[in-house]
Amino acid sequence: MATSTAPRQAARTGPPSILLKTVVAVTGLLFVGFLLVHMYGNLMILAGPEASTSTPTTCGPSVSR
Rank of each mutant, 00 (worst) to 15 (best):
T53N: 09
H38R: 06
K21T: 04
L30T: 07
M39V: 12
T57Q: 13
G60S: 14
R8D: 08
T57W: 03
R65V: 11
G14S: 06
S62M: 08
N42D: 10
M39F: 10
G41H: 12
Y40K: 11
V26W: 12
Y40W: 13
G28H: 00
P7A: 11
K21C: 05
T5R: 14
L29E: 05
T58D: 02
P56L: 04
V23C: 10
F31Q: 02
L36H: 01
T5Y: 14
G60R: 08
A51I: 00
P15T: 02
Q9F: 09
M39T: 11
L46A: 15
R65S: 05
G14Y: 05
S62T: 04
Y40T: 07
A6P: 00
G33L: 11
S62K: 04
T5M: 03
I18E: 15
P49S: 15
V63R: 13
R8H: 04
L29A: 14
A10G: 03
H38D: 01
P16M: 01
C59M: 14
P7R: 13
T55R: 15
G48A: 02
T5D: 05
F34S: 10
L35V: 15
N42M: 12
A47N: 12
V24I: 10
L46T: 12
I45N: 06
S62Q: 09
E50R: 11
L30Q: 04
V37Q: 08
P16N: 00
M1H: 11
